[in-house]
């Protein structure tokens, strides 16, 4: 930080968590839809489609976060702190994307209610 740089707004810290918050939402929604669908004996096809839609919608949101973080460069105004926080947010988002695929990627492919 130098006197010439503008501080990174505190709200920017949310971006550190954004990707994983979406991953958490994906996990909970997939678990809930799956549980409700199996309990109330929904048809396999629509249930599988619903789970796939939930998964891809969340992946799309994480992808959008990744794209947005990649496009905005606060470092020009915010110095080293901006660079640090941006890079940390980008890598946390990439980690969230990979985690979503690894943990939930097989959901549309496996037997639904067993």
């Amino acid at each position: 930080m130098t006197a010439r740089t503008a501080p990174v707004p505190p709200g920017y810290l949310w971006w550190l968590a954004a990707g994983f918050l979406v991953w958490g939402s994906a996990l909970v929604v997939v678990y809930a839809v799956h549980g409700i669908g199996c309990t109330f004996a929904w048809s396999t096809g629509p249930l599988r489609l619903g789970l796939a839609l939930v998964l891809f919608a969340h992946l799309a949101v994480i992808g959008w976060i990744w794209h947005r973080l990649g496009g905005v460069d606060p470092s020009r105004d915010s110095g080293q702190t901006g660079v640090f926080l941006r890079m940390a947010a980008v890598w946390a988002t990439i980690a969230a994307f990979a985690t979503t695929i690894f943990t939930l990627g097989a959901t549309p492919l496996l037997t639904v209610c067993l």
Binding site: L27, H34, C38, T99, T103, L104, A106, T107, T111, C113
Partner: peptide, 19 residues
């Protein structure tokens, strides 16, 4: 718990080792 849920919770439990 249904097997599908077991699968994704198992995957999460494994990937926590990475960080």
């Amino acid at each position: 718990i249904p097997h599908l849920a077991l699968a994704f919770f198992s995957a999460s439990s494994a990937i926590v080792a990475v960080p």
